[in-house]
């Protein structure tokens, strides 16, 4: 099993586990119909069951002769740029909560073009500024969406 699949399944298991526990506080049903807790509780249980099936399948496949565990390491090294962009985007969104949407977004676009797409710094700045100007014209000036 690849690292990405382990992370995905672990995340989904935590997600459904939290909702399963939360749904225990909701009415499950009455004689006339089902309550708001019926679907989340049952579906969360099914999800945990399906994750279990996939994990067991992967475990059994891993025990077969000739199974290779190197995919996990390879996966991790190639995912580093993505993790960096996710962290940068999260930082930009946090900065947006202070007021301006366009300033952190512009900075993020420049870094993406410059450091991740391999363009020169000046070109990255100019292209990002041009794209932001178009976005500002459409969303803010025309559609009156308060981007700032």
């Amino acid at each position: 099993m690849k690292l990405s699949e382990i992370v995905l399944l672990a995340g989904l298991a935590v997600f459904s586990g939290v909702l399963l526990i939360s749904s225990l506080d909701m009415p499950y049903g009455s004689e006339q119909s089902f309550g708001p807790g019926y679907i989340p509780l049952n579906i969360a249980l099914v999800i945990l069951g399906l994750i279990g099936i996939l994990a067991v399948k992967a475990f059994m496949a891993g025990r077969k002769p000739g199974a290779d565990g190197s995919a996990v390491i390879e996966d991790l090294s190639s995912a580093l740029p993505v993790a960096a962009v996710i962290v940068l985007l999260a930082g930009a969104i946090y900065a947006m909560s202070w007021g301006s949407i366009l300033a952190p977004l512009g900075l993020l676009m420049i870094i993406l073009s410059w450091r991740f797409n391999g363009h020169g710094f000046v070109k990255s700045c100019l292209v990002s500024a041009a794209i932001l100007a178009v976005i500002y014209t459409i969303f803010s000036l025309w559609l009156k969406i308060p981007l700032q």
């Binding site: 985007l89 930009a92 969104i93 947006m96 977004l105 676009m109 797409n117 932001l132 969406i145 981007l147």
Partner: peptide, 29 residues
């Protein structure tokens, strides 16, 4: 050549314009 930053910009602004708050950008992330 700058498609990644263009798409991220459109996604961020599009998600923001749903309710004029950063919450939907977090959801999109």
């Amino acid at each position: 050549g700058h498609l990644a930053s263009v798409v991220i910009a459109l996604c961020v602004v599009g998600a923001f314009s749903l309710a004029y708050s950063t919450f939907n950008i977090w959801v999109a992330l």
